[in-house]
Design a protein around this nucleic acid. Sequence first.
RNA 1: GCCCAGGUGGCGGAAUUGGUAGACGCGAUGGACUCAAAAUCCAUUGAUGGCAACAUCAUGAGAGUUCGAUUCUCUCCUUGGGCACCA
Length: 820
Amino acid sequence: MKEYNHLKIEKKWQSEWQKKKVYQTKNNFKQKKFYVLDMFPYPSGVGLHVGHPRGYIASDVYARMKRMSGYNVLHPMGYDAFGLPAEQYAIEHKINPEKAVAINVKTFEKQLSVIGLSYDWERRVNTTDPEYYKWTQWIFLQLFNSYYDTKKNKAQSINVLVKIFEKSGNKNVSAHSGNVEVFSASEWKNFSLLKKQEILMQYRLAYEADTEVNWCQNLGTVLANDEIVNDKEGKMVSERGGHPVEKIKIKQWLMRITAYAERLIDGLEKLDWPNSIKEIQKNWIGKSEGSEIEFKIKNSNKKIKVFTTRADTIFGATYVVLAPEHELVFELKENILNWDEVLAYIEKTKSEEDADRIAEGKEKTGVELKNIKVINPANNEELSVWIADYVLAGYGTGAIMAVPMHDQRDRDFAVRFNLPIIDKPFVDAKEITEKVGGKVVKKYKMRDAIFARQRYWGEPIPLSRDKNGIINEVKKLPLVLPKVKSYEPTGKAEGPLAGVSSWVKAGYETNTMPGWAGSSWYFLRYMDPKNKKNLVGDKEIKYWKNVDMYVGGAEHATGHLLYSRFWHKFLKDINIAVTEEPFQKMRNQGMILANDGRKMSKRWGNVINPDDMVKTYGADTLRLYEMFIGPFDQYAAWSTESIIGPRRFLERVWRLVDKVDVKAKSSKEFLNSLHKTILKVTEDIENMRFNTSVSALMILLSEIEKEEKLNKEDFKKFLQILAPFAPHMSEELWNLLGEKKSIHISGWPKSENKFMKQDEVKIAVQINGKVRTELVVETDISEDMIKKIVLANDVVDKFLNGQTPKRVIYVKNRLINIVV
RNA sequence: GCCCAGGUGGCGGAAUUGGUAGACGCGAUGGACUCAAAAUCCAUUGAUGGCAACAUCAUGAGAGUUCGAUUCUCUCCUUGGGCACCA
C-alpha cells in the first residue's frame, strides 16, 4: 500500500462528489426527511480561524449519518450579509458593500470547501440578493397588514379590524400597547384618513412610533440593546468600538413581538434545546403574574392603578410610588403643593441616562407629592404618594404600592425618607384582588423590537408616504436598495438614503431594516430557494416543515433565536409556515480557544488557520480532531501538538487495507467490538457526543489490528461508521475495495445483538465498598452461584478474617459487595 | 443581588446516569529497529510508601444520605454565561 497522501485524495473526492452531485437534496417527498441546519454566517472578510468550522463539522457529521441512514437530508449553507459589520468593512476598505460581500463570500467558500462539508450548494441563499430580500420585504408588509387578535390568539388581517371598527367601533378590541381612545362606529366613519391611519398604527404588528433609542454619535447609528455594553464606569458604550451612547427620541418602525410573548414562553417547553438557552429566553421575556389594583385619590375622582405580584402583602402597604414620567403626575399638578420640587425631580430623571441611574448605586431618591393621598382599598387607610426613579414607567402600570416590610427596594426607600414599615399577616392574593375590585394580569419585561436602522446596508422598508402623510405599500417587490455615493454615517438620526433625492422624492423610508430581518426566516427559503412566485412552495413547506437539528452559537439566545421564533409563529398564523416552532432541536457549539486560553484573534497573534491544518494534516484529520477535542457544547483549547493523534489514527486505518481478505473469518472478539462500536457511534452522533464516538473508533481500530487477516465485509462496516468523520479517506478505501457507488449513500450498518453477547464478564469484588479483587465468571451468573464463588475466594477470606457477612449486594455482571 | 452551566492526572478529557475513577488522545520516560535521526512498534506513566505482592490517599473545600457518591442533598470557594431598581 502506497503512502497516505491526503492532499491528493481529498482534492480528488471533493471534485468527484461535486461532479456526481452526491450531496444534492432532491424533492423525494415520499422519503423520510431530515433537516440539519447551521446558523448561517456573516462573511466577515477577516477569514476563518480553526474555531469557526467546529459547528459546521459537527452538523456535517450528523447530516452524513442521517443521510446514510436513509433520510432525505436537507443540509444547506448561505450568507447573512446585511448589517453593520459588512457596512463597516465596506467603509474601512472604501468599497461598495455589495462588492465587499461578494469578495468575502468567495473567501469563505474557498476556506470551507477544503473541509469536505456535504452541503447542497445549489440551495445557497444570500440575504442581500434582491431575489431573497424581496421576500423579507414581503413578510414586513404582511406584518404591517396584520394585528394581533387577543381572543383568537393569533394574527389577523388588518382589514378584519377595519370591518369591526366600521361595525362597532373599538370598544371590544383593545390595542396591544399604547392608549387608544374609545370610539364608536359612526365616529370611525368620520375620522380623517390620517386619523384612521394613526389609530390602526396602534394595532399593526409592524408599526411606527416615537421611541427612545440608543444613539451613538461616533457610529452614526441607533443601536439595539444587545449591541450596547456598560463600560467600567457603568456608562453605556457601543459593543463595537466602545463609543459613548446616549438616549434620544425619534420616530421609527417597530415589531410588536410583545403580542407573541405568551406563545414564545409556552413554545419553549416542547423544544429540545439546551436548558440554558431556554432559561435566557424565559428571563428575557420576563413573565410575571400579578394584580392590578386601583387606589382612589382622596378628594378627587382619579385613581392610581398599581401592579404588584404580591397582592398578598397589601395590608403592609405604607405608601404609593409613581414613575416620574407617569402622566397622572401632570394631571394632578393643581393639587400638588410642592409642584416646583416635583417638576425639578422629573426634569432631573429625564436628563439622566439609565446607566447613570444604575451607577449611582442603591441610593434611593424621590419626592413626595404633597397634599396627595390615596386610600388603600383593602383597609381604607390613607397613604402618601411619591415619585421616584426606582419605579419604571415602562413596566407594569408605572406605579406601585410599597410594602417595605417585604420588598428590599421599598424598605431602602422607606428608611431613607422615614416612612412607616409595618408587619401585617399575608392574605390570599387572588381573593384580595377580587375583593378590592382588582384584576389578575400577566406582565412581560420584553419590549417591542425596533425594526429600523439609520444605515445604508439593509433591506429598504417597502413603504412610501405621500405629501399628506398617508402611508402606501410598495406594490412591486423587491424595492431595490439604490446605489449611493457615500455609505458613511450622516451624523444625523437618518440613514444615507436620505441623501438620495429620487428616493426621498418618492417618499420612501430612509431607514433600512435591522440585521436580523433577513436571518429570521432564511431556513424556510432553503426548502425552495428558487421559487419566484412564493416565499416557499406549498408542497415543499409541507414536506420539510421545520428544522430538525439546528447548530450554532449560544450568543444568539436573545437575538436571532427569539426573532426567528416570533416571525415563524406569525408566518404560521398567516398559513405560510406549518409548525409553531422553527427549530425543533438545537445544540450550541463551544468556542475553540487558542493554546493560551484566550480567544483566537489577530490582536493576540494566536490565530490558527484551518487552511494550514488541512494542508499539513488533511481535512479528515482536522475533522476528527475538532470532534475529538472535547464535549461539543463546551469551550476547548486548541493544541496543534495534539492533532497528531487523529492523524496517526488515520494512518493506521490506511495500513489496514493490506490485510483485507474476502475469505478471512472475523474473530469473535472483533465482531463483538465491531457491533458494540456501531451501536455506540450511532448513539453518540445522535446525541452530539462526537468526542466519545471518535474514541470508540480508536478502540475498535486497536481490536482490528489484532486480526491476522481482515474480513472485507466487516471492514466495510468499519469504514461506514468512520465515513461521517473522515469522508475522504473512507471513500478512497471504499473505492479501493472495488465499490462503485459512494460510501456516503451506501447505507448505515446495523449493530446485531447476536454478536454483542459475551460469554464471560469481569466482576469486581468489594468488601465494605472497597475493591479487593476481580473475578471472571460466565455472563448473567446467578446471585447464589457468584456468592458461593466469592466466599470461597482466598483474597475475600483474608479480608473477612473470620467474620460473617452481614449483607451481600450483587449488581449483575458488574460487582459484588460484601458488607461485614 | 438574582438565574443558569462548569471545577476530575503534566495537558484535552472518559465514567453505561448511584456500581471497579482516570477510557481514548497528547506529552513524558525506558526499550526495539537504525551507523544515526525521523517515522513506526513494545512497555511504563494520578500521588505517597514499598525490592515486590500490596497498602493508603485522591474527582474545588467541608458536611450529609447510602453497602457503595465524580454522580444525589446542604453550605461554602471558584471560573464562565445571562439578567439586573421589572414591583
